[in-house]
């Protein structure tokens, strides 16, 4: 790891200023991803701005939404009574990610900002446009079993690794960020981006902006939601495919639906067309199967990840069945 300067920010403004003054500085919160990447020389910021002293750990209910501070720990959110009661989907997704120790360290903001786990991104001996723009995409014709099937480009087929973000995008969350010009809100779906010709950019956050909180609007999904994650071992592994499913069922008819997928795209992948196909229909396996087919439209497989085209819809159906209480 390179040597770097270390600074503790006492206010969000100070952190933003520090980022503005040094384009090679990075914010550190839990460090679970950044320290790992720095050890492997994938990232090498020359300055770390520690924001652990900032008062951003609170989870509170306000005006029809729940606000979660950017520094709230993953484990804190997962075990929070308010979250478990109002957004069990989020709690479930958080507990599906990483390990208990990592969840005790990782912040909500850091989880949103985490980088892809693509093998080629992680190994500086291999080409990767995200790490070294112009070096090529190692995964495109390489070992791409873990890679994206939606929204890829010739430049990058990496996936976003978060579980939490899949729940957040399904729950219509908003990210509140601070920058030199003040605060702004970014709808969760617009926060992360597709790789296009700039795979080095994971998201739409500016270099000198930082996340303050995530807001989740109140909803009627708490009774019928489910996060299902399929992975290569029973725990502590990244998703092959994961699905966040949330339903508002009136009697037997679906009034509202939210669906998002993980492990399939460079960003948390919201399935709005499939949601539409669920609304007004009875909560049956058949309905779910139809929605799942719609969900997979436009998916494109690579040499080693064609299974996701089949696994994806199956997991959607299973997640919906669980959400609807059919299992």
């Amino acid at each position: 790891m390179i040597q770097f300067q270390y600074e503790r920010a006492s206010t969000a403004q100070a952190a933003v200023n520090a980022l503005t003054n040094n384009s090679n500085a990075k914010i550190i919160a839990g460090g679970t991803n950044l320290v790992d990447l720095m050890k492997r020389n994938v990232m090498a910021p020359n300055k770390l701005i520690d924001i652990n002293a900032l008062p951003l750990r609170e989870i509170r209910q306000q005006d029809g939404k729940i606000s979660i501070g950017a520094m709230a720990l993953n484990s804190q959110v997962a075990d929070d009574k308010l979250i478990m009661e109002k957004h069990p989907l989020l709690s479930q997704a958080l507990n599906a990610g990483a390990s208990a120790q990592i969840r005790n360290m990782a912040s909500v903001g850091g989880n949103i900002m985490q980088r892809t786990r693509c093998h080629y991104f992680y190994d500086t001996a291999l080409p990767c446009n995200k790490r070294e723009p112009g070096s090529g995409c190692g995964a495109l014709e390489g070992m791409n079993r873990m890679h994206a099937v939606f929204g890829t480009s010739e430049q990058c087929i990496a996936v976003h690794p978060s579980d939490m973000c899949i729940a957040l995008v399904a729950l219509d969350a908003t990210v509140l960020v601070a920058g030199p010009k003040g605060e702004r809100r970014i709808p969760f779906e617009e926060f992360h981006r597709l790789p296009g010709n700039q795979p080095e950019k994971d998201n739409t956050l500016q270099n000198n902006e930082m996340i303050l909180s995530v807001e989740i609007p109140d909803n009627a999904f708490s009774k019928n939601s489910h996060y299902m994650k399929i992975r290569d071992r029973a725990s502590y592994a990244f998703a092959l495919v994961s699905v966040a499913a949330a339903l508002n069922i009136d009697g037997k008819v679906i009034k509202e639906a939210r669906l998002a997928m993980g492990g399939v795209a460079h960003k948390p992948w919201r399935l709005k067309e499939a949601e539409k196909a669920l609304v007004g229909k009875p909560a049956t396996e058949e309905t779910f199967r139809q929605a799942a087919e719609i969900a997979m439209q436009g998916a494109k497989a690579y040499k080693h990840n064609a299974f996701k085209l089949k696994l994806g819809p199956n997991v959607i159906v299973e997640a919906l069945k669980n959400a609807a209480g059919l299992v």
């Binding site: 190994d123 001996a125 291999l126 190692g138």
Partner: peptide, 8 residues
Amino acid sequence: DHRFGRYV
């Protein structure tokens, strides 16, 4: 990845 002879 046999193109590089390197484990992924």
